[in-house]
Computed example of a mutant assay.
Amino acid sequence: MDTKKKPLFIAFSSQKGGVGKSTFTTLVASTMHYRLGYNVAVFDADFPQHSLVKMKARDLAMVMENETLKKLAYRQFTTINKKAYPILQHKADNVLEAANEFAAAAAVPIDVVFFDLPGTVNTPGILKALAGMHHVFTPITADRVVMESTLIFTQLLQDVIMKKGETSIKTINLFWNQVDGRESTPLYGVYHQLIEQLGLPLMQSQIKSSTRFRKESEADSRTVFRSTLMPPEERLMKACQLDLFVAEFLKIIQL
């Protein structure tokens, strides 16, 4: 009898590109795996770009070229005594089967598998993949196009996939990203009201806008934010309130 604990399947997903799906997958996976002691794996099913597979290759090259990052990485991996989390390239149509097979064969029990999925519901297999998630997190910004696209996507998940009953989804969670702390726009109030009327769950924590979300480690970098090999530096996490987001994220998934 297979008594191995099955991992949680989690996706940062949206129908709108450029809102931070891959970035949040990396940030949360790296925080959990390298800092919080969980074992994670990532399936990059965002065909054809597979940006996370490419990011890991760039991160490896950057660590080898940057003496500061090389020392940080050496210290980290000798302290935690485990390898970098795997990022596996796959297509959406049978990614659930591949993830289950990987978890069953893994030498160490996997706590969470993150999925970086395509940003369009027209992709073959995407609805099946989404239905196989336990938790879906969707970043939103105070932009009309982003909001319209996201609300349609989220209602599709709630009204079509979840109500049919053939799904593993326990929660769908919207959260504000790229919030400008210097700006008080009435749009936030309007969108909050609309989200409430639609009965959609909105996380309390908000991610403040930062150029760090668009930057990977550079040749002369002395700190790490977005990396597949190391967790984001704690001071940088606090600056954009990513620390509060991760705390709320962990409460939701109840690992």
Rank of each mutant, 00 (worst) to 15 (best):
D2P: 15
P7S: 11
L8D: 05
L8Y: 04
L8V: 02
F9T: 02
I10S: 00
F12P: 13
F12M: 12
S14Q: 11
S14V: 11
Q15W: 03
K16P: 06
S22R: 07
T23Q: 06
T23D: 03
T23I: 11
T25V: 15
L27G: 10
L27R: 11
R35D: 08
N39T: 15
V40Q: 00
A45F: 06
D46H: 04
F47Y: 14
S51G: 10
M55C: 07
R58T: 11
D59L: 06
M62P: 02
V63H: 02
M64R: 15
M64S: 15
T68Q: 10
T68M: 00
L69M: 13
K70N: 08
L72M: 15
F77A: 00
T78Q: 11
T78W: 05
N81D: 11
K82N: 08
K83N: 13
Q89I: 08
H90N: 07
K91M: 06
N94V: 07
L96H: 02
N100M: 05
F102W: 04
A107Q: 13
A107P: 02
P109V: 05
P109G: 00
I110C: 03
F114K: 11
P118Y: 04
G119P: 07
T123E: 03
G125E: 01
G125K: 09
L127T: 14
K128W: 01
G132C: 08
G132R: 14
G132S: 06
M133C: 12
H134R: 11
H135V: 03
F137W: 13
I140Y: 05
I152G: 05
I152N: 13
T154L: 01
L157R: 09
L157G: 02
K164M: 05
K164S: 01
E166I: 01
T167L: 00
L174G: 10
F175R: 09
F175Q: 08
N177W: 10
Q178G: 03
D180K: 13
R182W: 04
E183F: 13
T185P: 04
P186S: 09
P186M: 08
L198M: 14
L198F: 12
L200I: 12
K208R: 13
S210T: 15
R212T: 00
E218Q: 14
S221R: 10
F225I: 07
M230T: 15
L236H: 12
M237E: 14
M237P: 07
C240I: 15
Q241T: 12
D243W: 10
A247M: 10
E248P: 04
I252K: 08
I252H: 03
